[in-house]
């Protein structure tokens, strides 16, 4: 079927045509070519903006800082440093730990919400979905800033508790900690968890649930044996969509993390900013990218395995 010409297009191609429009004729005949041509501007921009910069980033990661310039002799010294110096490994582990905890927390907290909208909201479903996803579209910077206002030394929680007389001194652990980063990330990425879980729950054939009930399963067993397994693709997609971008987050750890909550993104920024060691920054970005790819592949295999089990 792939190259079968469309009926009306073949009619056009059959019409007498001047020789100069051979290209046009080819375009009319080849569906794929027309598709590629339409995609070309978008792909060009994405290549210019992603692929080429990334290749240069890879090249730069093999360079060495040399005063204000670069020594462009390729070496793998930067990678060796990242591999051998414990600070980098610790930073990477911490980034994955923080975003891992935030991901699990977000998915667990959002699952009942998605479940409620999928099974218990019958009218104005769209309004609920928009309400749940609306904050996600507004400024990420400002949402993180809002948490700084809340968790700050004299912030909403501390000053509120103090004026109510519950505490004498502000609680210092609220701001500049890993917990602050985790809370903020979980709150900021909620929409990314709700949508995929909601979609997978909505797709579940309701007659399966009825069958389970008819065959004697109570609500809990029905949920554990039918609903939850069938919604796993959504849960996995949600975890993926939160875990990957949050590992490289910069704003949240920068505003709320302090020294204990700093993540790999902050370190990359340091290399490009105050430390001014661009090749090292490039190396860290590539290493982050490598780990992200590894995690993405793991998620991919997980989804495949799950799909095979479900079908």
């Amino acid at each position: 079927m792939v190259d079968t010409p469309h009926p009306n297009r073949s009619a056009e191609a059959g019409a007498p045509m001047p020789r100069t429009s051979r290209l046009t004729a080819l375009l009319h005949r080849s569906e794929a070519l027309r598709g590629y041509l339409l995609m070309a501007p978008t792909l060009l921009i994405m290549t210019l903006g992603i692929a080429i910069p990334f290749l240069i980033l890879v090249a730069m990661s093999t360079w060495t800082r040399d005063g204000f310039g670069f020594d462009t002799t390729p070496t793998i010294n930067n990678y060796l440093r990242v591999w051998t110096e414990p600070v980098f490994g610790a930073l990477m582990t911490r980034s994955f730990w923080i975003s891992g905890v935030a991901t699990v927390a977000t998915v667990i907290l959002c699952y009942p919400m998605a479940y409620y909208v999928a099974f218990h909201v019958h009218r104005r479903k769209m309004l609920w979905i928009i309400l749940m996803t609306l904050p996600f579209w507004t400024s990420y910077l400002l949402r993180v800033f809002a948490w700084k206002v809340i968790l700050g030394y004299e912030g909403v929680i501390n000053s509120g508790l103090m004026s109510l007389g519950f505490i004498e001194q502000p609680l210092e652990f609220l701001l500049y900690s890993q917990e602050a980063v985790i809370i903020t990330l979980a709150h900021a990425w909620a929409a990314f968890a709700i949508l995929p879980i909601y979609v997978s729950l909505e797709k579940i054939d309701r007659s399966l649930l009825e069958a389970a009930t008819d065959l004697g399963d109570g609500p809990v067993r029905r949920f554990l044996r039918v609903t939850l397994p069938l919604s796993m693709p959504g849960v996995i997609a949600a975890s993926f969509l939160i875990f990957i971008p949050t590992t490289g987050d910069y704003i949240t750890p920068a505003l709320l993390g302090g020294p204990d909550g700093a993540m790999i993104g902050n370190f990359i920024q340091l290399q490009f900013g105050p430390v001014n060691n661009w090749p090292m920054g490039a190396t860290l970005a590539i290493v982050l990218m490598f780990w992200i790819t590894a995690v993405a592949l793991a998620f991919l295999f997980l989804t495949r395995a799950l799909r095979e089990r479900l079908t």
Binding site: L241, I244, Y250, I268, A285
Partner: peptide
Amino acid sequence: KSALVTFIMMPLVIPGIIFGVALLVL
């Protein structure tokens, strides 16, 4: 096609800082 779509959708998932520094370097 699906590979191309994945390529276009990449910025949705990959941390913005990677694209930021990559473009800065370019």
